[in-house]
Amino acid sequence: MERVPVLKIGDILLVSIQLDMSDQTAVQLQDDLAERIVSTGCHGVIIDITALDIVDSFVGRMLSTIASISKVLDAETVVVGMRPAVAITLVELGLSLNGIRTALNVERGMELIAAARPDEYDDGEGGDEDADDETTDTR
């Protein structure tokens, strides 16, 4: 059985799914990720599905489960790179991927994770913009 590699980049685990996964491979990935989150102490998981030409209910469920598991383990999961045809099909299939954060690409996914944990990723700039945010909000 093939295995999907999990890469650690800084404080983020990056999973780039490049193959047409069998169900077993998908379940294995779920287990691998949970283990890696704990062993690395990472607080962000990015799952890049740019290369996937379909997402069926099984893979959809796997993504949801990973998101839930990582939440329990204090990590944010962002699914990035979903193709338009895949998104259209998921809508038709009736799969809403509730509870999953998504972003257009890896870069945006990292922004989303950084934004979710402003304390840990504060790069000085964040503080200023936060202040702006307050003023807009209380307009």
Binding site: D53, I54, D56, F58, R83, A85, I88, T89, L93
Partner: peptide, 28 residues
């Protein structure tokens, strides 16, 4: 099965979205 369906769908000139829908249905 997914790969076979994809090949036939491409050869039958289904649009990308229709291919994706059919392969997804076949997978289920």
């Amino acid at each position: 099965v997914r790969q076979l369906v994809r090949t036939v769908a491409v050869a039958s000139k289904l649009s990308l979205v229709d291919q994706t829908k059919l392969v997804t249905a076949a997978s289920e």
